[in-house]
Write a protein that binds this DNA or RNA. Structure first.
Length: 466
DNA sequence: TGAAATGTTGGGGCG
DNA sequence: ACGCCCCAACATTTC
């Protein structure tokens, strides 16, 4: 009777799990193990909210495993040491895990592979970030050609069904899922594979039909909301791909066709940034573009706190940050606006914003988050040109035209009429009290003048750039 | 996956 | 009828 270890990291699902399936083919007994890694828990990028979401996901996975007569073994410690002692206790002869190409995971897995037989399977991305290169062998650094190549590749295999049955693991020391009483995201994102599948179905049946029109609307539920699930593999990239593909096939010659293609593009952006971090790991520390490594970032703890706490005086920015703080997620349009405000209006180093987002996003992923911040700051691969400065008032009018997003997250503005919702500072002084919004008392005046800040940041970038 | 500044056009008011 | 001005509305250029 042979046994192997299924080492779970960011693949918290039973369906379409290539590591699990490979393990089942190779052995009579599969031991599902999650190792709580103190190094990851203590990282400056760690997030209470995300850890809680992870633990919820583990609880859900454990329940699903029990339905299959199995169960999750949770241990804590250095992954190599834990795996070595598991090897001794179980006579397992091999470990199966889903490959994770982020820098820490690669180092960790190389260390394990050096001492123990570890087989890595694909799954975090649809296509291998190592293999997807330009014809001359160098990595892509521009999105459009990357996406063209990505789309031209043969389709991945269809998602694997969840196994019917799993052999019960032997009795082992098991911490169980740690309790996290402080956790709350208002129930917005329930963790687990089942929830991920429900959301995927809801998205491909309904939301995707208006995705092209609504995906940038912060006041609507116009996006898939799947990012936290993709982050922890409660949904595989391949499952998402085939869902997009099937929605597309049903939608030929309808507006939904373009929608499915646009959503697929977002999945490709995710893989693009995974590839960038894989090929250029230094982007974690510094700008991808060397000429923009010495921008005169301002040291402004007061401004940073105002940004973090959502009291910049720009309603859309404040709504965005309060949404993040409340539910651990932010609309993508809001991410761009709030990142643009921090880097371009406050001229604060994008790395400070990157870290804060990592500390709060349920979907916080080093590759995608870094890519997004460097894109906005204009320092990254294929980034927004430096002169592309978002005007938070115009962005609000365009993508929250009724102000519903602002009113939802900035309740002190709930009495402000539409005409002023994105610029409450312009409410005539004698009307402010009547509307329940006295500027400087109920809601702050803008902490920085956008027109001035725009000139300031353009001058700073121009000086560095060419 | 911008926004502002600048340039052009054309309709309407008016002397 | 005509020229002139104003200024939306739209296009182009610039940052």
């Amino acid at each position: 009777m042979s046994s192997v270890i299924w080492w779970i990291r960011r693949d918290l699902r039973l369906s379409d799990n290539q590591a699990l399936s490979a393990a089942l083919e190779q052995a009579d007994t599969v031991i599902p193990v999650f190792i709580i890694d103190p190094i990851l828990m203590a990282s400056p990028y760690a997030s209470q909210q995300r850890v809680a979401f992870l633990f919820e996901g583990l609880r859900s996975l454990d329940i699903d495993l029990h339905k299959h007569r199995s169960g999750l073994i949770i241990q804590k410690g250095d992954p190599l040491e834990v795996l070595q002692s598991l090897f001794r206790e179980t006579q397992a002869y091999r470990i199966f895990a889903e490959a994770d190409t982020s820098p820490y995971a690669r180092r960790r897995d190389e260390g394990v592979m050096h001492k123990l037989p570890l087989t890595l399977t694909p799954g975090v991305t649809v296509h291998s970030v190592e293999k997807l290169r330009k014809p001359d062998g160098t990595p892509y650094t521009v999105f459009t050609p990357f996406s063209r190549m990505w789309r031209s590749l043969p389709f991945p295999g269809k998602p694997l069904p969840a196994p019917e049955w799993l052999p019960p693991p032997p009795p082992l020391p098991n911490l169980g899922v740690p309790a996290l009483p402080s956790y709350s995201n208002n129930g917005t994102f329930l963790a687990g594979e089942n929830e991920a599948q429900c959301r995927l179905t809801k998205f491909t049946d309904f939301i995707i039909n208006r995705y092209a029109e609504d995906r940038n609307r912060m006041d609507l539920e116009g996006t898939s909301g799947l990012s936290p699930y993709l982050r922890f593999g409660m949904l595989s990239a391949r499952q998402a791909f085939w869902a997009a593909r099937e929605a597309d096939a049903l939608a030929v010659d309808t507006p939904s066709h373009q929608s499915a293609q646009l959503w697929l593009n977002e999945l490709i952006w995710r893989e693009f940034y995974a590839a960038i971090l894989y090929h250029f790991p230094y982007v974690r520390y510094t700008a991808f573009r060397p000429e923009l490594r010495n921008l005169p970032w301002r040291d402004d703890p007061v401004g940073f706190s105002a940004w973090v706490e959502g009291r910049t005086g720009y309603p859309v920015v404040d709504a965005a940050m309060r949404q993040l703080n409340a539910i651990g997620w932010m609309h993508n349009r809001a991410r761009m606006i709030s990142a643009s405000f921090l880097t371009k209006d406050l001229l604060i180093d994008w790395r400070q914003g990157e870290r804060y987002f990592m500390q709060h996003l349920l979907d916080g992923d080093p590759a995608a988050n870094n890519g997004g911040w460097q894109w906005t700051a204009g320092t990254g691969t294929d980034a927004a040109p430096y002169f592309r400065v978002f005007n938070p008032v115009l962005q609000g009018k365009k993508f929250d035209p009724l102000g519903a997003y602002v009113r939802r997250w900035v309740p002190e503005l709930s009495g402000v009429p539409n005409a002023f919702i994105h610029m409450p500072v312009e409410i005539p002084a004698d009307k402010q009290a009547h509307l329940g919004c006295v500027i400087g008392k109920d809601y702050p005046a803008p902490i920085v003048d956008h027109a001035m800040a725009r000139q300031r940041v353009l001058a700073a970038y121009r000086k560095q750039g060419r």
